[in-house]
Amino acid sequence: MSEFSLVLATLRQIRGLSPFFALDVGRPDEGWHDGSALLDGPALPATVDRIAARYRTAEPRVAASLFFLSYTARLLSPVVAALAVGGAAPDVRPANLWWRYDEDGLRVRLKEPVGGVGVAESLAPVVAAVRSVVPVAPGLLWGNAASSAAGALRVVARGGAASAEECVRLGEELFAEPPLRGAGEFVPFPGEVAFRRRNCCLYYRLDGGGKCGDCALL
């Protein structure tokens, strides 16, 4: 089976586990940005500004954190789910993406169903781009990535596609090397994927916001 076929088969498999893992492939309609617009140009700053206005925050770092939390949730969820079921994880580097931010929030899709690289290599250029727009702490952004990955593993385990123990082992492997090392830890809890991050995504600083279940401030 070709790489394209393996990735497509995995995307179909994990999509069936949960809509949370759905990731479409192919050129979209008008109004989408090429992934390169994440790294340079006005699209990312404008999106952070829109998020700040949408959530009525005067703190750019909160808006930047919310953008990256959404970004990692949309992309790491299918990647981690693919790894958990033993499939072929897709390439989610900016060069292989389309994206847009609208009234439905952040949406992403793949250009091609090709195999990917490690989580850190996939996300590092976007971490740098976000920090060039807003000087938010890198540890906070990588904590968001860890939180998104752990959340995806929790969904996989609860859906029965892999055991909680297998998901925790995968998570510990993913978080074994910098920059994800030290972002959080898995908490022993029978039959469940329990994770506690070591920092906060700042959601609590929004009007009506609270603390997430894995927040270090709890």
Rank of each mutant, 00 (worst) to 15 (best):
residue 77 S to T: 13
residue 117 V to L: 06
residue 98 W to L: 07
residue 87 G to L: 08
residue 109 R to S: 14
residue 107 R to S: 15
residue 90 P to S: 08
residue 89 A to N: 11
residue 71 Y to N: 06
residue 104 D to S: 14
residue 102 D to R: 13
residue 99 W to R: 13
residue 111 K to A: 13
residue 82 A to V: 09
residue 82 A to M: 06
residue 101 Y to Q: 03
residue 91 D to W: 03
residue 106 L to C: 10
residue 115 G to Q: 13
residue 83 L to F: 05
residue 91 D to M: 05
residue 87 G to M: 01
residue 106 L to W: 07
residue 76 L to S: 11
residue 112 E to L: 14
residue 85 V to K: 01
residue 103 E to I: 03
residue 74 R to T: 10
residue 104 D to I: 07
residue 106 L to E: 12
residue 99 W to E: 02
residue 80 V to C: 01
residue 92 V to M: 00
residue 103 E to Y: 05
residue 113 P to M: 09
residue 115 G to M: 10
residue 94 P to H: 09
residue 80 V to R: 06
residue 118 G to Q: 09
residue 81 A to I: 10
residue 114 V to S: 09
residue 104 D to H: 14
residue 117 V to N: 07
residue 85 V to E: 07
residue 111 K to V: 14
residue 90 P to V: 08
residue 82 A to Q: 04
residue 87 G to I: 06
residue 100 R to M: 02
residue 108 V to L: 14
residue 116 G to F: 05
residue 107 R to D: 14
residue 103 E to S: 15
residue 71 Y to G: 00
residue 117 V to A: 03
residue 106 L to N: 06
residue 84 A to T: 12
residue 102 D to H: 08
residue 101 Y to G: 02
residue 96 N to M: 00
residue 71 Y to H: 13
residue 73 A to N: 07
residue 100 R to L: 01
residue 83 L to M: 12
residue 100 R to D: 02
residue 104 D to P: 10
residue 95 A to K: 11
residue 93 R to K: 12
residue 79 V to W: 12
residue 109 R to C: 13
residue 101 Y to L: 11
residue 102 D to T: 12
residue 76 L to W: 04
residue 85 V to I: 15
residue 81 A to T: 11
residue 105 G to D: 12
residue 117 V to F: 09
residue 75 L to Y: 05
residue 93 R to C: 06
residue 94 P to R: 03
residue 85 V to P: 04
residue 72 T to R: 01
residue 94 P to V: 11
residue 117 V to M: 11
residue 78 P to H: 04
residue 102 D to P: 02
residue 85 V to N: 08
residue 86 G to I: 04
residue 107 R to M: 13
residue 107 R to A: 15
residue 87 G to A: 00
residue 79 V to L: 11
residue 98 W to Q: 01
residue 84 A to P: 00
residue 117 V to Y: 03
residue 77 S to D: 02
residue 84 A to K: 01
residue 108 V to S: 02
residue 109 R to N: 05
residue 101 Y to K: 04
residue 89 A to E: 12
residue 112 E to A: 14
residue 78 P to N: 00
residue 88 A to C: 10
residue 72 T to K: 02
residue 85 V to Y: 05
residue 77 S to A: 15
residue 76 L to F: 11
residue 75 L to R: 00
residue 85 V to T: 09
residue 100 R to H: 08
residue 105 G to W: 10
